[in-house]
């Protein structure tokens, strides 16, 4: 279980004078799903942006397979796939073109791409829509396109920001099944979500963010111990821990 992603004493935000994240440290290993949990405004999305290399840290560092973004951005980016909270699609491209472009950008062989694409289209039941433009897609279908693009490229790390929003139950199940499979193959997955029951079922460890700081982290058992709430589920711990400073 090598450390895939290490976030080390990360301080960051949009303005140097007003950092949003304070001294955040956690890691994601291969063969592991880590849940990133926190209230709205806790700093989840900012943390993710730092991991993606879209923002530069004020202090501390983010390493993917031992390298920071600045040390080699193309290598860094090839190692991860991002599933955003709001589907980011190109309005002027068809579903198939989204897949093809993604495959091209990540340097997949054309035959490999076609094989994987057909499989994904079947699994997510989007085979009939390959020539459709995003304006004809529902929110859930748009999300599926993002998920398929991410699954296509077989990265070592997946970063998923609220991936379930708008997905139908079958879509959620396909996504989670795939995540479990990827984990078995050696990937690491960082998933931010508000759906705690699902998180509790699928995540191996949790990082609980609050006001830009890591409040608790570890397996469910460890969280229970740290919060002194033995036998409590994730929901209860979450509510209890975030209640305090009111």
């Amino acid at each position: 279980m090598g450390q895939l992603l290490t976030v080390n004493k990360l301080t960051g935000g949009y303005q140097r004078s007003r950092p949003v994240l304070h001294d955040i440290s956690f890691s994601v290993n291969s063969h592991e799903i880590v849940g990133l949990i926190g209230l709205n405004g806790a700093g989840k999305s900012t943390t993710i942006k730092h991991i993606l290399g879209l923002m530069e840290p004020h202090g501390g560092e983010v390493r993917l397979s031992g390298k920071t973004w600045a040390e080699g951005k193309d290598d860094y980016r090839r190692g991860l796939a991002y599933i955003p909270e709001m589907p980011l699609l190109y309005e002027e491209m068809t579903l198939w073109e989204h897949l093809e472009l993604t495959a091209m950008a990540y340097g997949l062989e054309e035959t490999v791409f076609k094989g994987r694409a057909d499989e994904l289209l079947k699994e997510f039941r989007m085979g009939k829509m390959v020539k459709w433009f995003p304006s004809h897609f529902s929110k859930g279908m748009r999300q599926k396109v993002m998920i398929m693009c991410a699954l296509l490229i077989h990265p070592s790390l997946y970063v998923a920001d609220e991936p379930f929003v708008g997905l139908d139950p079958i879509g959620i199940k396909s996504f989670l099944d795939r995540m479990v499979e990827m984990k078995r193959n050696g990937c690491g997955i960082l998933m931010s979500t508000h759906i705690l029951a699902t998180a509790e079922k699928y995540c191996d460890r949790f990082v609980l963010l609050h006001n830009g700081q890591v409040l608790l982290q570890g397996t469910l058992k460890e969280l229970q111990a740290q919060a002194n709430m033995h036998g409590a589920d994730l929901d209860e711990i979450y509510v209890e821990m975030t209640k305090e400073d009111q």
């Binding site: 002027e92 073109e97 093809e100 091209m104 054309e110 791409f113």
Partner: peptide, 19 residues
């Protein structure tokens, strides 16, 4: 053609023609 170097060509062609 299908090539990593052509990612932007791909993007620009669709943008120019359709959007």
């Amino acid at each position: 053609s299908y090539k990593k170097e052509h990612v932007y060509r791909y993007l620009f062609s669709r943008a120019f023609v359709r959007s």
